[in-house]
Design a binder for these strands. Structure first.
Length: 330
DNA sequence: AATGCGGTCAACCGCGGAATG
DNA sequence: ACATTCCGCGGTTGACCGCAT
């Protein structure tokens, strides 16, 4: 047996609410409380469906609704909560006082989602989009990073099944090995333009450098005294990417053990090595294009957001340099 | 000035789960 | 246990607006 409609739709008004209707609804609820939404419209003298009344009240007329632009803190909270809760808008709204699920959902779809995509982040998984990733990073990291094993195996399967991917992977790996004495691999700016036949024979990925023990320094950040130095302190500012790779437990670059640091530092170390400094620098700022050693950072953020980078726990200010080289910290 | 286009967001729709009899 | 009702949620729609051409 089919479900009965929530209300008799004949003769009931739809569409935007008038001021008069708003006043009727507010007056009634302030006097009697919402009570039964089904019977409310009739009691309040409204020719609306109860569902429409509830929506109008909860999303617009409720007195505790905070209106206006989302703050950076709220935006960060939404991204964080979404990475954990997914599209559970009501659950997210419950943690943001004064904001409705509808408002958060709209804001996500119209602002945040687009910006994540622009920055090469998959808004569903909150990870870099695989189609923009450096394949060699995955292939080369499997021996070092157990958390990537499944994904790496999947990619390997795809590579074996797809000759085009096989050629691409072979080319990338060959270039990587060829440039192994460089501080960071220089990859073709556009892998699709790589030669379809590799000039180098395929070689299995080599064992990555052993990662340090928990609390050990990353070699390229030695000398840092502040885990997250502030701009102007004289120390380099490192863009954090724990938000961008939340499932990999990215964290601050630390020069000592941090008892409050929940992740496995080995993992962090390996992951940094696996993804490379170019991604670390480029993902939040210049979007999806992998940078090479001569790239120039371009801040494509909206004007009011320029010079900012998002992180999971705090909000950093930094100056965008005109240019940088791989391995640099800004 | 007219038109097209994309962005925004209030409102609607259908579904599923909880509550009730 | 089952049928029915109600509520809340997430996805989608469409009106409205500003901007570009």
């Amino acid at each position: 047996m089919g479900r009965a409609p929530c209300c008799d739709k004949n003769g009931l008004k739809k569409g935007p609410w008038t001021l008069e209707e708003d006043n009727k609804l507010v007056t009634y609820i302030q006097t009697h409380g919402p009570g039964n939404w089904r019977t409310l419209p009739k009691n309040a003298g409204l020719e609306r469906c109860g569902k429409s009344c509830r929506l109008r009240w909860t999303n617009y007329l409720r007195p505790d609704i905070k209106r206006g632009r989302f703050s950076f803190e709220e935006e960060e909270a939404i991204i964080q909560l979404h990475s954990v809760l997914g599209n559970k808008w009501s659950a997210i709204a419950a943690r943001l006082p004064g904001r409705t699920d509808n408002e958060i959902k709209n804001y996500w779809n119209t602002h945040i989602r687009k910006r994540l995509l622009r920055n090469g982040i998959d808004p569903v998984t909150h990870t870099p989009r695989l189609d923009l990733m450096d394949l060699s990073s995955f292939l080369g990291s499997s021996l070092c990073n157990p958390s990537l094993l499944n994904l790496t195996n999947l990619l390997r399967t795809q590579v074996l099944l797809n000759p085009e991917l096989l050629r691409l992977a072979s080319t990338i790996l060959a270039l990587k090995n060829y440039n192994s004495d460089l501080p960071s691999p220089i990859l073709p700016e556009n892998p699709s333009l790589s030669p379809t036949t590799s000039p180098f024979p395929y070689q299995p990925p080599q064992q990555m450098q052993e990662c340090n023990n928990t609390g050990d320094l990353l070699t390229d950040v030695s000398g840092m005294s502040d885990p997250v130095p502030k701009q102007g302190s004289g120390a380099p500012t490192i863009l954090r990417q724990d938000y961008y790779f939340p499932e990999l437990n990215f964290g601050r670059c630390s020069n000592g053990s941090d008892p409050s640091f929940p992740c496995e530092l080995n993992n962090m170390c390996e992951t940094r090595q696996c993804f490379g400094i170019d991604l670390l620098l480029s993902m939040p700022i210049s979007g999806s294009t992998p940078l090479n050693s001569s790239s120039t950072l371009v801040d494509s953020s909206p004007e009011e957001e320029k010079g900012h980078s998002y992180s999971s726990n705090n909000f950093l200010d930094f100056e965008i340099p005109e240019s940088f080289e791989i391995g640099d910290f800004i």
